[in-house]
Design a protein around this nucleic acid. Structure first.
Lengths: 161, 161
DNA sequence: TTTTATGCAAACCGTTTGCAGAATC
DNA sequence: GATTCTGCAAACGGTTTGCATAAAA
C-alpha cells in the first residue's frame, strides 16, 4: 500500500488510520470542493456502505482540529468542510461548480493593518470568503448569460484514489 | 408617543408596528452589539414576559429581510444578529465587549477587484469580519496584559429606551 | 493487550411551522 | 373588518453523545 501525502499528513496528527478516515480525507483533499457533512456521508457510503453519520462528523472534526480542513459556517445552519493548506484560511468559492481556491493570509494582512491603524482595533482573526464564479465556469458560457445549465458532473465524481 | 428613527425605518418596510417588534429592533439598534436569538429573547422578556421564541425569530427575520439587520453565522450553529446601516455588511467584532463596528463595502472592493483581475474569479459576494479587541477595551488594560478580567457589565445592560 | 474508533440509536438544541386567538391598520 | 402578528406547542434537521463492539497500534 502506497503512502499518500494525505495519509502522511493524517498520520502526523497522531490519529489512527482507519479506512473510513482515509476515505473522508481523500475525498476532501482530492475534490477541492466544499461539502457538507451529509454530502461527505453520501459519497463515502459508496465505498463504505455501513459507515455511520457520527463517524463522518467525528472524522471531519479531527481533520479540522488537525488544521487539515476548515469548517465554514454556511447560511442555513449547515456546516461545510474544505480541505485546506496550512495558513490558507480564506477562499474563493465558486457558486456554480463549488470549487474552492485558497487565498493566502497575505490578502487580508494589509487590510487588517490599516484597520488597526485607523480605528484602533486590534485584529486577532478574520474571516474572508469570496463567492462568485471561477474562471472555468465563466468561460463555459457567454458573458452575461444566466447560469441555467449548471453542470452536476463534478458533484457526482467518485473520489477514486 | 414619539417616533424614533428605528420606528420610522421599520414602518417603511411595511410591517406592523407591534410592541414586541419595536422592543427587539430598539434593542439591537441601541446596543450596537451582536446577539443570538436566545440572548435577544432573554432581554426582551424583561419588558415582554409573555413573548414567545417564535416571535423573536420571526421579528429578527423581518429585520434581516428589510436590510435593517444582518444575520451572522457564528461557530457552533448559532446565528447572531446585528443592527446594520444599509450597505455596511462587514464588521469589526470585539471579542471582549461584543461591540460591533460597521465596515463599509469599500474596504473589500479593491481586494475583490484585484482577485477578479489576477485569478479570473468574478466576485459576487464577500464575507469579511474581523475579530479582535476594540479601542475601548484595549485601553482598559495595559498593553500586552492578558485579558483575564473580562468585563460582563455591558452584557447585562438593560436596553432601556 | 491497551487504546482509540466505529456504528447504532437516542438525545440535543437552535430554529421553523401550524394554528387559534389577538392586535394592527 | 380584513389582514397580519402573536404565543403556544409540536415538528424539524443538523449535530452530538452514550455505549457495546470492533479495529488499530
Amino acid at each position: 500500500m502506497v503512502e499518500t501525502p494525505t495519509q502522511a499528513a493524517l498520520q502526523q496528527t497522531g490519529v489512527r488510520l482507519t479506512p473510513q478516515r482515509l476515505a473522508i480525507a481523500g475525498l476532501l483533499s482530492q475534490t477541492g470542493k466544499e461539502a457538507s457533512a451529509q454530502e461527505v456521508y453520501d459519497r463515502v457510503r459508496r465505498r463504505h456502505p455501513y459507515i455511520g453519520r457520527a463517524t463522518v462528523f467525528r472524522s471531519l472534526d479531527r481533520l479540522v482540529a488537525a488544521g487539515l480542513a476548515q469548517r465554514l459556517e454556511r447560511p442555513g445552519h449547515v456546516s461545510a468542510y474544505v480541505w485546506c493548506e496550512p495558513g490558507h484560511h480564506h477562499h474563493l468559492i465558486c457558486t456554480t461548480c463549488r470549487n474552492v481556491e485558497d487565498l493566502g493570509e497575505d490578502a487580508v494582512a494589509p487590510l487588517a493593518a490599516s484597520i488597526a491603524h485607523e480605528r484602533g482595533f486590534r485584529v486577532d482573526h478574520a474571516t474572508l470568503d469570496f463567492y462568485g464564479e471561477c474562471r472555468n465556469c465563466s468561460s463555459r458560457h457567454g458573458r452575461g448569460k444566466p447560469v441555467a445549465t449548471r453542470k452536476r458532473k463534478e458533484l457526482t465524481n467518485r473520489a477514486s484514489r
